[in-house]
Design a protein around this nucleic acid. Structure first.
Length: 414
RNA sequence: GCGAUUGUAGCUCAGUUGGUCAGAGCGCCGGUUUGUGGUACCGGAGGUCGUGGGUUCGAACCCCAUCAAUCGCCCCA
């Protein structure tokens, strides 16, 4: 006896209302990205492993435990993409897209991370993504932030979502800050949570957003990036905040918002909601001026963001904002002798751009009831009167839809 | 990798201290009723109670293991 294989942990079969919400998010993103003139790109779902491992650098945990890697038949290590950014950076370098700089691109699709599933977190998940490669100006950061803000507003989920904004400064500022943080936390080492004591060695910046209450008193008084910002970095951040003000995009300065990887510079941001449990980040991004160099390319400034489609879809669905598409016309074939006539009719309706569904199976007596339950604007029953197939249009009162359906039916004959 | 909770019909669930406990509603299929009609009634299909062990005269119920789901921790590019 063979058993049906189960779906892989952390994958989803998205269907029905969830699929509608998902599609609505993608469609809205596509509309907004056109407004901002971001070009659509399609990317491979897998790459050579170094594309991701080199971009991730020293965070060995992520590389070894969180990536879906495997060897192809030639023995080369490949990886299902865990993010869009590294693949886009690779494409920029290998295709000579420098000629198009500054390159504004947008994409969406599945990503893969070997994680324990929980609310809003899956092994195969989906993101929308927007990046600008080859532009060092803070105005570009602003454009991306305003675009993200508009997207959330167009989706109708901006209430309860706050933009958390921080700067990591340039390379030197960042390094000085990091050194100061290590020194500070080392002095309080014994009082930190076990996790944070561990983080002190691996990833000290992460102590700042620890969830452990034992760490809170120390994170509150920790050194802030502002004390270490160079004049240039201050100026950059100032222009970003001025741009946001000009676009009326509200934000909250969040000194604890950090990025673990060294290639991040300057702007870092997250749109966060309190409605998704522990996974509150709805859209996140920042400037990664150091990434293309890490991939072996020339120094190339870049900035971008990504957002989880599932999380956005949940917010949209919870707010009841998924557009419903009501069936326009349903045909109830109450006599099988009228079936071909009904088939002619439904074909004509659909060719006229009228969406239609036909009920022609099961007990003929119950087909009309089924048709009623389909919730269409217009019901057409098909019966035979003295042996002649006949269509009867039912509508409570004449409407644009019923008139249109009637007009098509007038032109159809058994 | 760790923790908590949960697994009974296609769906939502009930099932008492282990002793007709294999059930209900919805959905599906069929029949009757109604006949410009979202009605009502009758009937039917469908489950080795997640899986495998164990305790017991007897397990959906107790114990162990395992798988899966949900939520959280770790991690978060």
């Amino acid at each position: 006896m063979s058993k049906t294989p189960q779906a892989i942990r952390g994958t989803q079969d998205i269907f029905g209302a969830d699929a509608e919400a998902f599609a609505h998010v993608v469609e809205t993103f596509e509309r907004v990205r056109r407004l901002y003139r971001f070009q659509r790109v399609e990317m491979p779902v897998f790459e050579k492993t170094p594309v991701f491992s080199r971009s991730l650098g020293e965070t060995t945990d992520v590389v070894s435990k969180e990536m879906y890697s495997f060897e192809d038949r030639g023995g080369e290590s490949l990886t299902l993409r865990p993010e869009f950014t590294a693949g886009l950076a690779r494409a920029y370098l290998t295709n000579g897209w420098k000629q198009f700089a500054p390159l504004k691109v947008a994409t969406h699709g599945p990503l893969f991370r070997y994680e324990r599933p929980q609310k809003g977190r899956y092994r195969q998940f989906h993101q929308i993504d927007a990046e600008v490669i080859g532009a060092p100006e803070p105005t570009v950061d602003v454009e991306l932030l305003v675009m993200a803000d508009q997207l959330l507003k167009e989706l109708g989920i901006s209430d309860g979502v706050t933009l958390q904004l921080n700067t990591l400064g340039d390379g030197e500022s960042r390094e000085a800050w990091r050194a100061a943080l290590i020194e500070y936390f080392r002095d309080h080492r014994a009082e930190l949570s076990e996790d944070s004591q561990d983080r002190l060695e691996r990833n000290p910046l992460r102590i700042l957003d620890s969830k452990d209450p034992r760490d809170k008193p120390f994170t509150a008084d920790a050194p802030r990036i502002d004390q270490f910002l160079s004049g240039e970095a201050q100026d950059f951040f100032g222009k970003v905040t001025e741009g946001l003000a000009a676009a009326s995009v509200a934000f909250v300065r969040t000194p604890s918002l950090v990025r673990g990887l060294d290639y991040y510079r300057h702007t870092a941001f997250e749109f966060v909601t309190d409605r998704l449990g522990a996974q509150g980040t709805v859209l996140g991004g920042g400037r990664y001026d150091g990434l293309l160099e890490a991939l072996g390319g020339p120094a190339t400034p870049a900035v971008g963001w990504a957002a989880g489609i599932e999380r956005l879809a949940m917010l949209v669905a919870d707010a009841g904002l998924v557009p419903q598409s009501q069936l326009t016309c349903v045909l109830a074939v109450e006599d099988d002798a009228a079936l071909t006539f009904a088939q002619k009719a439904i074909t004509a309706l659909r060719f006229q751009g009228i969406d239609a569904e036909m009920i022609a199976s099961g007990s003929p007596r119950k087909r009309y009831d089924k048709a009623v339950k389909a919730g269409a604007r217009v019901i057409v029953s098909f019966t035979c009167v003295e042996g002649v197939p006949t269509a009867n249009l039912k509508a409570a009162e004449p409407s644009a839809e019923s008139l249109a359906v009637d007009q098509v039916l007038q032109q159809i004959h058994p």
